[in-house]
Design a binder for these strands. Structure first.
Lengths: 341, 341
DNA sequence: TTGTAAGCGTTATCAT
DNA sequence: ATGATAACGCTTACAA
């Protein structure tokens, strides 16, 4: 039943009539080996279909040419795109990207990362929650290079690459205010997301500055469409519902659209809706979703580049790269029906 | 600069005043160790923040409790959902899922899988293309358990879990024929996708059986929205355009909707559109997309279950689990404006 | 109950 | 130019 054991360096060496060390040198292009021997070894390796054992190589202290990436989830187009872009960037540099999800469970996240630190990746890209400050000091001790993506928590010496959230949200809210909206609802993002916190912070400060702060216009969320639907139902069920709703993610904004549809409200005539992410479908779902875009590809590319630098031994300590966000106005926002004085 | 080296079993052993073996036994719950010693060891391990080195454990022949999964890409909601469901199922069984993408490049895919075989996962879930028959014989030799997902290629002894495509497509086309459509366009899926081939096969056979086969109604695709848009532009630009278009994926169907919009066509009044996948947004994009659904969660769960059985030593050779697909009729399909006689 | 010895597959170092 | 040796960190016999 059990098939033949894996082909090892020793097998190749035996077939080629040389030592395992020689095979290793040939296959890794190290040391000085005669062309004939090289030829013999190559042939033997190909014949046996030899592939180095990653675990052994890693244990010995060698590189696996694998980058590990940890994301909260993959169903959000945001993370899917981020992962794809990172995989692309890694691939262009001859690295593979191994992706792990955390289900937004902090405890599991730690174990996962610890395990990855346990030595199968040459470096780690982490999209970590904000509440991880104590944990970060552990990560800082790690001898495996780490780059944090979209981290907005406490101070850290680890390099950070992120998209800007505060200014983008401010721009979006000013857009709504300029249209004449005064009651603007907000549906928040996932609990431990630093980006969600940034967006909420911007919302609160803009509304306060405009003298429009009203805590009852705020609903909890988690970036999913379902929460957007539920939050919007709650907001639209109020005695004086908001004339605009800003959802902390496009997915939630789609849920808000559903809620509007349920109540027979036209978008944007009866209610304005805005999201965050500029996911691929934001332009497709009529009437087009007003939202805020991150240069996801740039973020991923920069993170990979930084990580590779760290792997090569360069110091990336305390580096912070922040990419600007951009307001994208589409058809889902318009002046309210009855602008207030 | 370089932080202290990784904590090893020996460090824990030293602190606890026992041998490395004892620590290993305690941490893995093997052997018989006195409660006091267990206590000591646990305390020492926690104090040092010890985490086992995955590479070493794996090399020794131990389990990493990591399952590897290889998918063509992650941007399609289909694969994102599949990966999420698999990660969930694995998580419930105490396993982590490491995800790798192939960029639909067969060469890279092979290297990737070989490398994963190289020993960091306890088992592998592979979404492989059809053209991999020779490669499959290599995989069959592998001592790492493997389960193929959505494989429709040549015969193999490897276990396969897949969603049904042919009958679902037939049902969808019969739905369109019953509505009175006679010119039904088709936009294909990715070149090496077994599922795409199945869908095309069903399309061709149904159309031939109905005496409606017309090769010029077929456009190549790749599952992306862009290809859907391009294919639909080509189809709608014909002298006698189709009254309905079946796209091999929801994403492409969204592209078809865009093309319809470009030409000022109403859906479904002027043209019927159908997709495949029942992605989360199929119900959201007005007027709702008629499509075919796979029980993705069931597929992923079955694949993980099968893989774990294989890891535990049970024979799963030649097993084939096929899950039915289901026609989901929404607003994007209706009778054509001028039904033919 | 605990510890000793051996080995997993690879590669860096040092000899030859 | 090639090879012997050792070591990476862990776990499975087996011995005490």
């Amino acid at each position: 039943m059990r098939p033949r054991a894996r082909t090892t360096l020793a097998d190749v060496a035996r077939l080629a009539g040389v030592s395992a060390v020689t095979v290793s040198k040939v296959l890794n292009g190290k040391g000085h080996i005669s062309p004939e021997t090289q030829e013999k070894v190559q042939r033997a390796a190909a014949l046996l279909g030899y592939v180095a054992n990653t675990a052994a190589r890693r244990l010995r202290g060698g590189a696996t040419r694998i980058l590990g990436m940890v994301v909260p989830e993959l169903v959000s187009p945001y993370f899917a795109e981020l992962a794809r872009a990172a995989a692309d960037a890694a691939g262009r540099c001859g690295y593979d990207l191994g992706l792990f999800t955390t289900s937004r469970d902090p405890q599991r996240e730690r174990e996962r990362i610890q395990s990855l630190l346990g030595g199968m990746a040459d470096g780690l890209l982490l999209v970590v929650p904000v509440g991880a400050s104590e944990f970060l000091s552990t990560l800082e001790q790690s001898q495996v290079p780490i780059v944090l993506i979209n981290y907005f928590g406490g101070a850290t010496h680890l390099p950070v690459v992120r998209g800007e959230n505060y200014e983008g949200t401010v721009a979006l809210l000013h857009h709504l205010l300029a249209l004449g909206h005064r009651r603007i609802g907000f549906i928040g993002g996932a609990e431990h997301s630093g980006q969600a916190k940034e967006r909420y912070r911007a919302y609160r400060e803009v509304m306060r500055a405009a003298g429009l702060w009203d805590e009852t216009l705020v609903q909890p969320g988690d970036f999913t469409r379902r929460k957007g639907l539920e939050g919007a139902r709650a907001l639209l069920g109020r005695p004086s519902p908001p004339t605009a709703i800003f959802a902390g993610s496009d997915l939630m904004a789609f849920g808000v659209m559903e809620a509007a549809q349920e109540r027979g409200l036209q978008v944007p005539a009866d209610i304005s809706i805005a999201g965050f992410d500029d996911s691929p479908l934001a332009s497709l779902v009529p009437p087009g979703l007003t939202t805020v875009a991150h240069p996801i590809a740039d973020i991923a590319e920069a993170a990979v580049r930084l990580l590779l630098e760290a792997i090569e031994g360069k110091s990336v300590r305390d580096q912070l790269l922040e990419f600007p966000s951009r307001l994208v106005v589409r058809g889902s926002t318009a002046p309210p029906k009855t602008p207030l004085p």
